[in-house]
C-alpha cells in the first residue's frame, strides 16, 4: 500500500501552470481596472442619491395621498434594501484576508449568519412592501394612463418581480450553502 509520502510526492510532481509575462500584465490590468471601478462606483452612487432626492422633491408636489403612500412604500423598501446591502458590503470588506485562517473563518461565518437574517426577514419583507406599494398605485395608473401603457407597466412589473426574485433566491442559496460549508464539523 502506498503511504502518505507517495501521495505527497505525486502531488508535488503534477504539472502546474507557471507565471508568465502575459499573466502578470493581465493581473496588473485587473488591479488597475478594480481601482477605476471603485472610483466609478462612488460617482454612480452619488448620482443615484442626487436623482432620488430630486425625484422625491418633484413628487412631493403631488397632493394625492394614495400616490404618496404607494410611491413611498416602493422607494422606502428599495432604499432600506440598498442600505442593508451597502452595510453588508462594508462589513464584508472589513474582514481582513491576511488574518490567520481560523480567525478569518470565524469572521466569515459571523458575516453569513448576519446575512441569513437579512435573507429570511428583510428581503421578503422588502419585496412584499414594494409589491403592496405598486398595487396601491395601480388604480392611479389605470385612471391616468392609456390602456396599452397600463398593461405594459403591469406585465413588465410582474416580469421584473419574478426575475428579481429568482436572482435574489439564487444569491441566497449560494450564501446559505457557503454558511453550511463553513460550519461543517471536522
Amino acid at each position: 500500500m502506498n503511504n502518505f509520502e507517495d501521495l505527497q510526492n505525486n502531488w508535488q510532481n503534477q504539472t502546474t501552470v507557471s507565471a508568465t509575462e502575459d499573466g502578470f500584465k493581465a493581473l496588473l490590468k485587473g488591479v488597475k481596472s478594480i481601482e477605476q471601478k471603485q472610483r466609478t462606483g462612488n460617482i454612480v452612487q452619488t448620482i443615484t442619491i442626487i436623482i432620488l432626492v430630486a425625484f422625491l422633491i418633484y413628487v412631493s408636489g403631488y397632493k394625492s395621498e394614495t400616490f404618496m403612500l404607494g410611491i413611498g412604500l416602493m422607494i422606502g423598501s428599495l432604499v432600506v434594501r440598498i442600505a442593508i446591502e451597502m452595510y453588508s458590503l462594508k462589513k464584508l470588506r472589513s474582514i481582513s484576508f491576511s488574518n490567520e485562517s481560523n480567525t478569518f473563518q470565524n469572521d466569515l461565518t459571523s458575516y453569513y449568519s448576519f446575512r441569513k437574517y437579512t435573507h429570511y426577514l428583510i428581503t421578503p419583507l422588502a419585496l412584499v412592501i414594494y409589491t403592496v406599494g405598486f398595487i396601491i398605485l395601480l388604480p392611479l395608473f389605470k385612471a391616468s394612463l392609456s390602456h396599452g401603457f397600463y398593461l405594459y407597466i403591469l406585465c413588465s412589473s410582474v416580469v421584473f418581480l419574478v426575475v428579481f426574485s429568482i436572482f435574489i433566491y439564487k444569491q441566497i442559496r449560494k450564501e446559505l450553502s457557503k454558511l453550511k460549508e463553513l460550519q461543517m464539523k471536522d
Binding site: F97, S98, E100, S101, F104, Q105, L108, K174
Partner: peptide, 16 residues
C-alpha cells in the same frame, strides 16, 4: 506565509 494565508482565505470565501 502571508501570501498562503491570503490564498487560503480567498479559497475559503469562494462562493461560485
Amino acid at each position: 506565509t502571508w501570501i498562503y494565508r491570503i490564498c487560503v482565505n480567498t479559497c475559503l470565501a469562494e462562493i461560485r
